[in-house]
Nucleic acid binder design. Structure first.
Lengths: 238, 238
DNA sequence: GTCTATATACCGATAGAC
DNA sequence: GTCTATCGGTATATAGAC
């Protein structure tokens, strides 16, 4: 799957999610027309992410959000009951999209090597199109309440587990040489996150998301494919 | 060098730096007695880092800082002229310490392999003792003004360059197999940063800084030492 | 050098007109 | 469904007593 194809799939999921959020919030939200609500919700989320990523969510005043989104203070409060609820809605929306998109990208029937490559690429593509959300999530997790923080950690661990599973499968088939699948998954995830957090660095060096994906895949593969392949082992498919 | 030895070296450097800061700020600072000033500065920095790392620097009110540090609002403003200046002072102090400690840890006379191991370990030890500052720096860089942001990026690139230099030296001596030293250094740095940013994850798994250092060293080495070592190459010292 | 008291501005949130 | 006007609270920063 190329980046452009991926982009289309993810955009569709994005709309799905705005509808889902509206459906769930219909009780607490004052707006009743779905078309209006979904349009404004997407608008608010976008404006909030843009402003928050400049100086942080706490520093974003609702007056600034009102200005950027084009909605009045009063109108904003038709979509959430407090600034904190807005924070939670944004976090939820991103987590949902991450889960939805990632799980669709990996084919459990293919070889561990192919799955690993697909997972790395899909994760990078995802951070690329949801760059603002990932950065936001990264920076604002500590400002959530206990319950939301727990969800955020679970989401992180779930993504990591995708890599743990692939690595363990590769271990069982003797195609990966990994001493510690959990730690290996952690550092792989750290490399992927860097693409989002240190975006300025890669932009300055004119490295594209595909350049970075190719490099990370190469780096990880040479770390775990083992430098002394034992040709006598069975199940060797890579 | 063990972690405990490292700790002592770094603590000494920390005091040096508080004196340096006092010397430089003597003009703008109202306090004239060095002993008082250094003691309170260290106190203020520590309180500010603790509070900032809970909800972010912007969310930390100076009233809260006053409460935690034990100094009154008025007294605080004897040490800085604005909240933003405090932010800059904290960033400066950490950058200075990083530079000072890291440069003392790597022996340019040793082999690339040893230098790489030392650099990884030193960086992790440093993030361990300056955990609060690194987290702070990570989270608050975007809230700095343009000039300070530039300094922050330069500091990041300088640390990365330490690894680039080691990798290139290893390349020249044909002991490392690296396709792109800059990108390799970037991902190594990403792994090191993860130790600080995802501290909760490693704490929960009861992984010590030495466990993590050993793992990262092993992972990086198996990625770059090359899986088909060519025994006929000269200068091979690892 | 450190304190308390206060000036001024802006925050999140809401009430009520349209 | 969206607006404007305004509430009470709290923020940074400072003035002046001690």
């Amino acid at each position: 799957m190329t980046f452009d194809e991926f982009k289309q799939v993810a955009t569709l999921s994005m709309e799905e999610i705005c509808h889902e959020i509206f459906a769930e919030k219909q009780a607490s939200i004052k707006i009743k027309k779905e078309a209006v609500a979904v349009k404004n919700l997407a608008n608010i989320f976008h404006a909030a992410l843009t402003l928050s990523n400049e100086r942080g969510f706490q520093s974003m005043s609702l007056r600034a959000l009102s200005r950027t989104s084009g909605l009045s203070m009063g109108a904003l409060y038709s979509y959430f009951t407090s600034k904190e609820e807005l924070l939670e809605m944004i976090q939820n929306q991103g987590r949902r999209l991450t889960r939805k998109v990632l799980s669709r990208q990996i084919d459990p029937q293919s070889t561990p090597g192919a799955m690993l490559r697909d997972a790395i690429r899909a994760h990078l593509y995802l951070t690329e199109i949801m760059q603002k959300w990932f950065y936001f999530s990264y920076m604002e997790t500590k400002n959530l309440d206990k319950n939301q923080q727990k969800k955020s950690m679970e989401s992180e661990l779930a993504t990591e587990q995708v890599f743990v599973d692939i690595l363990e499968q590769g271990l069982r088939q003797h195609v990966f040489h990994v001493t510690d699948p959990v730690l290996s998954a952690s550092v792989i995830k750290a490399m992927l996150q860097d693409w989002d957090v240190k975006r300025w660095k890669y932009a300055r060096r004119q490295i594209s998301v595909d350049d970075y994906a190719d490099f990370v895949i190469g780096f990880v593969e040479s770390a775990i494919l083992g430098r002394n392949p034992e040709p006598d082992l069975p199940n060797k498919s890579i």
